[in-house]
Design a protein around this nucleic acid. Structure first.
Lengths: 203, 203
DNA sequence: ACCTGAACACCGTTCAAGT
DNA sequence: ACCTGAACACCGTTCAAGT
């Protein structure tokens, strides 16, 4: 967990309530899913009145955006961890496995992150928080070192959306239970994802 | 619209309230999005008491499942319409374009359909309504006539999850605004999707 | 500046009662 | 069998008031 619920002081009340709310929101998401994630519940759990969160977030949507920012950092770290120490093709494959595995380990958080229209996550200046592109940027760096195979007329420029859509699609299909590795004769996610990547990479 | 709101009689009250509720639910989803889709609102719009829907659906989840079944039929029809009259590779590409275009034209409905865990859509006997696999079955039929390119060790059996994940991923990335055809120099969705498919198909 | 208490207009769902 | 009215336990959000 990357969020400290307390920090120096022992009460939220003059500590960092903002971060405490985000942290608790992620905990609820992880343990009980999005349906359980209500403003009142978060406030209650953190020991504060139901109106208190509105001193830090102007709406629930705002809090959810902050949760997504946190989640995205975590997500990027997961991808990097899986790819660490690898080179070229294996680096790219590691990122992909990390992506899928993060989604499976944190389905509610990943779903929240991936179904949030970017228009609802714009900051005061109207730009998307740069962190939201972390996963995509990582993929781009992986593709730079190990491009997809390309066939005939296909343009190298399309590698990025193809790879992104593929990994994103697999993550979602696995999360919702529409696909399982077992259906295709694989024992676990890693083998399955690696086999799928075999279609794209020079593995 | 494939749902008749009235049917013979001029009152819901002794007509088909069940279908009227499903139809109105889809209308609300299309015009105002999932946030506006509440049991009470649907009942109100249809001119019935707030408790009435519970004579036909045991919970909101149940109604949503029925909405997904309707949506899936519609979705399948859209794919077939785009592929109609085409053969082999073009048939498969037509299905793909139909898939993506349905998602873009009915984002809220598609999102509902694609984020619903299959475990929440099982019928009384515990099986998934067969219609839920319509999109996948169509893709399989397309792949049978026009398999993906395969490379080295890649197995033909993986064509299905690869194609499915790809189209599903593109649909979602486009819906949430994370990708646009313009970013990659295409004027519209059809050109963009066709170019992406160039990586997979012998186009 | 940050938080509380109380209120407003909503929810999903249940259940006795009506037809 | 199908529907209503009223109720219960929740929501998100606002706002005056407290510290």
């Amino acid at each position: 967990m990357r969020i400290n619920e307390t920090k120096g002081s022992d009460h939220y009340h003059h500590g960092d309530l903002r971060r405490a709310l985000i942290g608790r929101a992620i905990n609820i998401l992880e343990s009980e899913g999005e349906a359980a994630l209500t403003m009142r519940r978060i406030a209650r759990d953190v020991g504060v009145s139901q109106a208190a969160p509105y001193s830090h977030f102007k709406s629930k949507k705002d809090l959810l955006t902050a949760v997504c920012v946190e989640g995205t950092v975590w997500f990027g770290d997961s991808m990097k961890a899986r790819a660490a120490g690898k080179q070229g093709l294996e680096y790219l494959a590691g990122l992909a496995v990390g992506h899928v595995q993060f989604a499976l380990e944190h389905p509610a958080l990943f779903r929240l992150m991936s179904t949030r229209p970017i228009s609802e996550s714009l900051d005061a200046q109207g730009n998307l928080p740069e962190i939201f592109n972390e996963g995509y940027q990582l993929m781009l760096s992986g593709l730079a070192a190990a491009p997809l195979k390309h066939f005939g007329s296909a343009e190298r420029q399309l590698d990025a959306p193809i790879a992104w859509a593929q990994i994103y699609g697999i993550s979602n299909l696995l999360i919702e239970g529409r696909i399982t590795p077992e259906t295709f004769g694989f024992d676990n996610v890693e083998e399955f994802v690696n086999a799928l990547l075999g279609h794209f990479l020079h593995l």
